[in-house]
């Protein structure tokens, strides 16, 4: 009876999965393997994929760099939150989640407004130097319009956009892993003569490995397929694979090539998740996405 109930309860989701995951996946494969003009079976889309390998490579590099930056920024934060009092933990956890309540597109656009050549940061800088000049003396020599920086449309801006948007996905799994570490193990390490660095390297870090791997995957996967961030914050030369796919559908009138590229991206994500799982394989709790 219990088993029947489980089957019954999972039916809606299974139907959902078939309708909205498996069938669309079939459609994607069908499109990838047909000719855009005639609709007959053809490998023409797959043959063009080689052209896009550099773009794919750029996307991987950008997302890996972003994932690493997220890890470096996120780990101390997660560690700190995990060692606060109960109330503070809940409050800080909520603060980490809070930006996710706002539209991703809006948050990215806000960064554009901040970083633009005529944006808020640059205008503040220019206003500051104008004020200095108005003081006279040694400052009188500051040229007009001094202090403007090239912030947007640089590789750094794209990484910033990714890190800002996906940092919570790093902090949250790290926090849940670190908070579960048995404090007695740390005490034992200290009793047995480990100094701070050794305790961290030989006890805390290995025990937080599942969180690190899961955090990297959760940042890498959305970052590698993003298209909006690179379009808004990158230059016309920073093209990521997500941009290429979006363009094939929206303007290029070539959904078939878009589908073929999507499959490549999907395989890439599966491979990465697989590698992460293998690394985490001997740990308790492997990585789930």
């Amino acid at each position: 009876m219990k088993k029947n109930n489980a089957v019954l309860l999972s039916t809606p989701y299974l139907i959902w999965m078939v309708l909205f995951t498996l069938i669309p996946l079939g459609v994607v494969v069908y499109y990838a393997l047909t000719d855009p003009a005639t609709g007959v079976f053809s490998l023409v889309n797959l043959r063009q994929l080689g052209m896009y390998l550099p773009v794919l490579w750029t996307s991987i590099v950008y997302s890996l760099v972003s994932a690493l930056v997220c890890l470096i920024l996120g780990y101390p934060v997660a560690y700190f939150i995990a060692h606060c009092g109960q109330t503070a933990q809940k409050f800080l956890y909520m603060l980490v989640m809070l930006p996710m309540c706002m539209s991703f597109l809006l948050r990215t656009l806000a960064w554009v407004g901040l970083l633009n050549d005529q944006g808020i940061i640059n205008n503040l800088l220019v206003a500051f130097f104008d004020w200095l000049r108005s003081l006279g003396g040694v400052f009188a020599g500051i040229p007009e319009d001094f202090g403007r920086l090239t912030l947007i449309r640089t590789p750094g801006a794209v990484v910033l956009g990714m890190v800002y948007n996906y940092l919570p996905y790093m902090i949250l799994p790290l926090y849940t892993t670190i908070v579960k570490i048995d404090h007695r193990l740390i005490e034992a390490a200290e009793d047995l003569g480990c100094n701070g660095v050794q305790t961290f390297r030989r006890v805390i870090l290995p025990l937080s490995m599942p969180g690190i791997l899961s955090g990297i995957t959760m940042v890498f996967v959305p970052a590698v397929s993003t298209f909006y961030i690179s379009q808004k914050m990158g230059s016309s030369n920073t093209v990521l694979i997500g941009d290429v796919i979006e363009r094939q559908f929206k303007q290029g009138n070539n959904p078939n090539l878009g589908a073929a590229l999507s499959i490549v991206l999907m395989i890439l994500v599966f491979v990465c998740t697989g590698i992460m799982n293998r690394f985490g394989g001997d740990e308790e709790g492997s990585v789930m996405v």
């Binding site: 896009y52 773009v55 363009r247 303007q251 290029g252 070539n254």
Partner: peptide, 10 residues
Amino acid sequence: ESLFMSVRNG
């Protein structure tokens, strides 16, 4: 269109 796509993506 395909030429333009390669200009944009290149």
